[in-house]
Amino acid sequence: MTVKQLRAFLAVAQTLSFTQACERLHLSQPALSLAIKGLEDSLGGKLLIRSTRSVQLTPEGESLLPLAKHLLAQWDNTEERLRQRFTLQLGRLSVAAMPSFACNLLPGVLVKFRRQHPKINITVHDVINEDVIDMVRSRQVEIGIAFSPEGAGSLIFTPLFEDQFIAVVPPQSALTQASTLTWETLLQHDFITLQRPSMVRRLLEQELAKQHIELPVAFESHQLSTVGRMVADGLGVSAVPSMCIQQMHQLGARCIPLTAPSITCRVGILTQQELSVAAQALRSVLIEQIKTPFLNA
């Protein structure tokens, strides 16, 4: 059976007239007759009894009528829902983002996206960098926001910006008087950082090791908010990507540019080759919205 054949049958069955069915479907009589014959041939028997004066349903035609109504209603509903997805009037999208981005930059992007496409619902997975990569690779999410991966494989990495690590110090510390800090000065104080396998922790250790500097960790936590609060309460100092400046200030800590060495990291979008229309739209908003580093935020 084809949709065209079912529509032809339903029009004739409801009007009991080939003439009226032709008008309803905008078909010629031969085209309508051919569609009905094709349906009957595919099913193996007569569905309609046609005379010069009337059209009647056979018992098999009577049994097909409610089924045809149901099938065509389902088809039309499916067609409409897909059309709505392609036109961004309906849909759901899953995104994975590392905590530093999810907490600080993603909400602003989602505000703009929601204004443009209010019918697209989004699930955000706030997970560590390594899990973002795994979730995109396994297709649990369509879009991931992460640091540039060492080996992307088949994934596509689209850079958004180059971020730079900044120092985070207690508000009462004398360090707040400095316009910039060196790592040597910062590491004279108790250091607070994220626990492994955090990519932030790994980047710091790798880059400092190149300068023969060891990262002495006094306190560690899984959450950036906990790290910021520990610093704000005077337990020590830390270093985080500059996109976290606003979050650190809200927690009560102070942020200062950090040099010698200056540690940078690329942040971008991870995707598979093919994306849904909704994912393509969000990717465009991300690229448009996230244009510059946030060192001066």
Rank of each mutant, 00 (worst) to 15 (best):
Q246H: 15
G153D: 03
Q188R: 15
R139C: 14
Q211N: 13
D163V: 02
P241K: 01
A178I: 00
V227A: 02
F157H: 10
V141N: 05
P170I: 06
L187S: 03
M135I: 06
A146P: 09
R137H: 01
R196T: 13
T176A: 06
S138K: 10
E142A: 02
R137K: 13
G153I: 01
M230K: 03
W183F: 08
P149A: 06
E142L: 00
Q247R: 06
I145H: 00
E207L: 03
V231C: 09
Q247G: 11
Q195D: 09
F157V: 00
R202S: 15
T226A: 09
V217Y: 12
Q211I: 03
E184A: 13
C244M: 10
K210A: 11
E207A: 14
L224V: 15
F191G: 00
A232W: 09
T193F: 06
L187I: 04
G236N: 00
F157G: 06
G228V: 11
A239Q: 01
E142I: 02
R229C: 06
S173R: 05
P241T: 00
H249R: 14
T193L: 02
H212S: 11
L204G: 00
T182P: 08
L224C: 11
F161T: 11
S198Y: 10
E150F: 08
D163H: 04
V169K: 01
V240F: 05
T193A: 09
S242H: 05
L186W: 08
I192D: 06
M243P: 07
L203N: 13
G153K: 05
L215K: 10
P170A: 05
Q177C: 04
V240M: 11
T180C: 08
F157T: 04
V231T: 00
V169F: 04
A174P: 09
R137N: 05
Q223C: 07
I166D: 00
E184H: 12
P216M: 07
Q223H: 11
S179M: 09
E205G: 12
P171C: 11
E150N: 03
H249C: 05
V200W: 07
V217H: 11
I213Y: 03
Q164P: 03
I156V: 14
A218I: 12
Q246K: 11
T176R: 05
L160N: 00
Q246I: 01
P216N: 02
Q164E: 12
L187Y: 05
P197D: 10
P171H: 13
S179T: 10
H189D: 10
S138I: 08
T158F: 06
F191M: 09
P159Q: 14
H189A: 05
S238I: 01
L224G: 14
Q247S: 15
E214W: 05
E184F: 12
D163N: 13
H249G: 03
Q177E: 12
A167Y: 04
Q195Y: 10
Q164N: 00
M199K: 07
W183P: 02
R196L: 13
P171N: 08
I143L: 09
L215V: 09
W183C: 09
G151L: 07
P159W: 14
